[in-house]
Nucleic acid binder design. Structure first.
Lengths: 339, 339
DNA sequence: CTCGCGAATGTTTACGTTAACATCGGCTGA
DNA sequence: TCAGCCGATGTTAACGTAAACATTCGCGAG
């Protein structure tokens, strides 16, 4: 059982089956020109010896690894981990494995290091889940034959980009609040470096401007519930704030708590809309109206994009937007009648 | 630039630098017996050609991939994704890459398939994040030289197991509520199949029994906030329920909402304790008292365990428990005075 | 009946790397 | 002065697989 012997190779199987190792190879790869009886013999020998193809040798010979590398900063964000999961599922469906390259700190040095590691890694393509400006300085070290797909970026001119339609999602959120009769909508942003956050902020601003509404100063958060709580405390001090659009659901959770503590009822006094549609958004107090992101679809398109590049050989540029949809729950209502 | 030529190999570098390919290999691996001037020449040639070691060839030669496979069901659970992240970070620190094998549906067939894929995959060891009984039928297909570490299991006699100290965590939660003066503590469980959930339930029951308290019937959830909400509605109908221990934070969120909707104040009327300490637990209404799980440490010990096995060559059995600690926030208080 | 063709299988070689062994000088010490 | 040794580098072979080419054999057409 616990032999620490050398692995079983094709040669071993061939010897037992009384054929050449090439025939074993043919059986392993389902090549048609092997007669039934020989095939059975070989399969029996494989089973007896517990043969498993050696993927290193296979990759060396074929020049391809059937593996996709995913480089990202953190799995703490729901978006990242859900996207990763979708990527892994779809890649597995296509017979590709996923190699994970976490980058602890988003500095250029770290990213560069990660890319260097990836370059040595057994990977046919890379999906990058991060802001692209960090990628730029690292590009030089990218092996030229490795294809890249980027998420959360606007670098569609240089890379193949897949992203949620941030702009339309934010627009829907703001429009929903305006339609309910709110005069304007306040906004809690994500971190400055985040492309997604910037896009949401831009769309919020534009939607207000196009409706001819005043644009209140945005409050800056960092995606965390804690930062949402701080923003919420500030908002509770603004007597004419009746509607808030929060750049993600976790910050919305913090806003809800702050408003609750300050005696502002949601949605009677103040409406709140989030972004992401976390699985637990429906259990917030009150259940949160939010913009649903389809991470599964994002992951699917990433894999699709990278596979097309790998198989086509040529990088494709352009941006693919995955649509969002507003999920209306109980945290939004018309504004209170003026005092 | 965009040559789709063959990759640069050691032989190419060697030719340009005017040395043998073995010398290039020595430089690449930091072997000491290469004189400075030669080393510089080789490094220059590497840079000029953009040389990158071919990991497939390397793995083939060495018989090791410096890669760890992680097999899990889903990343949706915070615990899994945080553990995975910690595993990836620590593995990277040790120069190991992570290959992800998601299993869509937790049936034995699926698991078996995943293990078969892993067997062909370039992996030196495997970390399994799932209930072990699903592993059992699949064991036969495990390549004998691949080491396994298991999380969330009690199979310490057959595998090396790393887990959070579920028992002590649950005990702390219940003891905290009893110390506050509650007569007994109700419990919302996770799904039946979950080892972690069972352990928490057992510990809850034992702690009550040892204190000589009555054991109310447990309510069964499935980890989701939605299921917590349903349990919360049921609990709100129990007039003498003053304290609830919920098997995770997401269900606690649902319980909080149900109690809130039914007019039960938390913690004045009913105390609630969760398990996990999600980053946003402090932003619940009210901030949740919960049992903190140290996923980083779990990940670290998994990697440590698997590396010891890989390097030692022999599987090690036994269970490592990572301690938990109770984080007291504002969802717990002494019971209301009897009416 | 024989030639030739194609199906089934075998043999050779190369993929890129590195361990093991071989070689070549120069330096130390008697 | 030279044997011996060590440090620097080169040469050979092997890891397991699969493509390319080679061989064998049976069978049908002429």
């Amino acid at each position: 059982m616990a032999h620490l012997k050398r692995r079983v190779s094709m040669a071993d199987v061939a010897r037992l089956a009384g054929v050449s190792s090439q025939t074993v190879s043919r059986v392993a790869n389902g090549h048609p020109s092997v007669v039934g009886s020989t095939r059975q013999q070989v399969l029996a020998a494989m089973r007896e010896l517990g043969y498993r193809p050696n993927s290193a040798a296979r990759a060396l010979k074929r020049g391809a690894f059937r593996t996709i590398g995913v480089i990202l900063f953190t799995l703490s964000s729901t978006g990242n981990s859900r996207t990763l999961e979708a990527i892994a599922d779809h890649a597995a469906g296509q017979g590709y494995a996923i190699t994970l390259i976490p980058v602890a700190v988003p500095t250029q040095d770290e990213v560069l290091g990660a890319f260097t590691r990836l370059g040595e890694l057994a990977v046919d393509g890379i999906i990058v889940i991060m802001e692209v400006h960090l990628l730029d300085s690292a590009t030089v070290t990218l092996p030229p034959h490795v294809q890249v797909v980027v998420v959360d970026s606007d670098a569609g001119d240089r890379y193949s980009v897949v992203d949620t339609d941030q702009t339309d999602g934010a627009r829907q959120a703001v429009a929903h609040l305006l339609e309910l009769g709110h005069r304007t909508v306040w906004h809690v942003t994500g971190p400055q470096e985040s492309f997604a956050s910037n896009r949401r902020e831009q769309a919020w601003r534009r939607t207000l401007e196009e409706a001819g509404r005043p644009v209140p100063p945005p409050l800056h958060g960092d995606w965390s519930a804690e930062s949402g709580y701080r923003a919420g405390l500030a908002l509770a001090d603004e007597p004419d704030c009746t509607a808030v659009f929060t750049a993600n659901d976790q910050m919305a959770l913090g806003v809800l708590r702050a408003l609750h503590e300050q005696g502002r009822r949601v949605p009677a006094d103040t409406s709140v809309v989030g972004f992401d549609d976390l699985p637990e958004a429906g259990a917030f107090i009150p259940p949160l109206t939010t913009v649903h992101q389809d991470f599964t679809e994002v992951g699917r398109r990433c894999v699709q994009g990278i596979l097309r590049q790998i198989e086509g050989g040529e990088p494709e540029h352009g941006t693919t937007l995955v649509p969002t949809r507003l999920v209306v729950r109980e945290s939004t209502a018309p504004p209170p009648p003026p005092a």
